[in-house]
Amino acid sequence: MVPIEHIMVFTGALFCLGVYGVMARRNAVLVLMAIELMLNAVAINLVAFGTLVYPGQINGMVFAIFVVTIAAAELGLGLAIVLRVYRMRSSINVDDIDLMRW
């Protein structure tokens, strides 16, 4: 299998793409998608360390399972919020959701 550094570079790149997506996109659904990318990057990293660096240790996988669980919950809530915002303001542009601005 590949050295751990390569996997880290890969997951790092995936995470940074997610960051870019969150910062650059205006559509709330797209922002949520970018967040999914970031979560995946982290989960891959956990599994890779668990399997490659500490073979036989189960913790990495368990953590990844929790990450998937939380991601599912987060996405469900996030989409619910998006729908609600859309119904209230007829827009899913995150720039329009600025009631708590100065």
């Binding site: 960051v19 870019y20 997506g21 969150v22 910062m23 650059a24 996109r25 205006r26 559509n27 797209l30 827009s91 899913i92 542009n93 720039d95």
Partner: peptide, 11 residues
């Protein structure tokens, strides 16, 4: 909305 906004460069 438009897909990207002016924040993309900072991102």
């Amino acid at each position: 909305p438009e897909l990207n906004h002016r924040g993309w460069a900072l991102g």
